[in-house]
Computed example of a mutant assay.
Amino acid sequence: MKFVAFERNTQGTGASRRLRNSGRTPAIVFGGEQQPIAIELDHNALWHAVQKETFHASVLDMDLGGTVHKVLLRDVQYHPFKPLVLHVDFQRVDDKTRLHKKVPLHFINADTSPAVKIDKCTVNHVLTEVEIECLAIQLPEFIEVDLGQAVKGQAFHANDLKLPAGVKLVTHGKPNPTLATVIEPVEEVIIAPVVSAAGDKKGKKAKK
Rank of each mutant, 00 (worst) to 15 (best):
L163F: 05
L161T: 10
H79F: 03
V116H: 05
H56M: 03
I118P: 01
P140C: 07
T54K: 07
K174E: 14
L147Q: 06
F156C: 10
I137G: 09
A155G: 09
V189E: 12
A110V: 00
P80K: 01
H172Y: 10
H172R: 13
L73E: 00
G203E: 02
L179E: 10
F156Y: 15
A158D: 08
R20H: 11
A110S: 13
P80E: 02
I137V: 14
Q149K: 14
I37W: 05
E40N: 09
D146Y: 09
I28H: 00
E184P: 04
S22Y: 04
A206P: 00
G12T: 07
R18K: 14
L179T: 09
T13L: 06
L99D: 12
G31P: 01
K201W: 07
K102L: 03
R8M: 10
K168N: 14
K204Y: 06
P104S: 04
G32L: 11
L105F: 02
V186P: 02
N9E: 14
P36N: 10
G166F: 13
L84H: 12
H157Y: 11
S16C: 14
D63C: 05
K101H: 15
A110M: 09
K201S: 09
F3M: 00
L161C: 10
L135C: 08
V116P: 02
V194M: 11
A27R: 03
G66R: 05
A45Q: 12
K120V: 05
P80M: 00
E33Q: 14
F3P: 00
S58N: 08
I118S: 06
A45W: 03
I37Y: 02
K70G: 00
T122A: 10
V182L: 12
V123E: 08
C134N: 13
K120D: 11
V85G: 02
H43M: 06
R18D: 05
A206C: 02
E141D: 12
T97R: 02
K208R: 13
H100R: 13
D61N: 14
D160N: 15
I191V: 15
I190P: 02
A15V: 05
L86C: 10
V123T: 05
P177F: 15
E40D: 12
E144C: 07
G148W: 04
V76I: 15
A192H: 12
A5D: 00
P26L: 11
P175D: 15
L139K: 09
G66A: 08
T171W: 09
H100T: 11
A5W: 02
L41S: 03
G66Y: 13
H43R: 09
G173V: 10
A115R: 07
C134S: 12
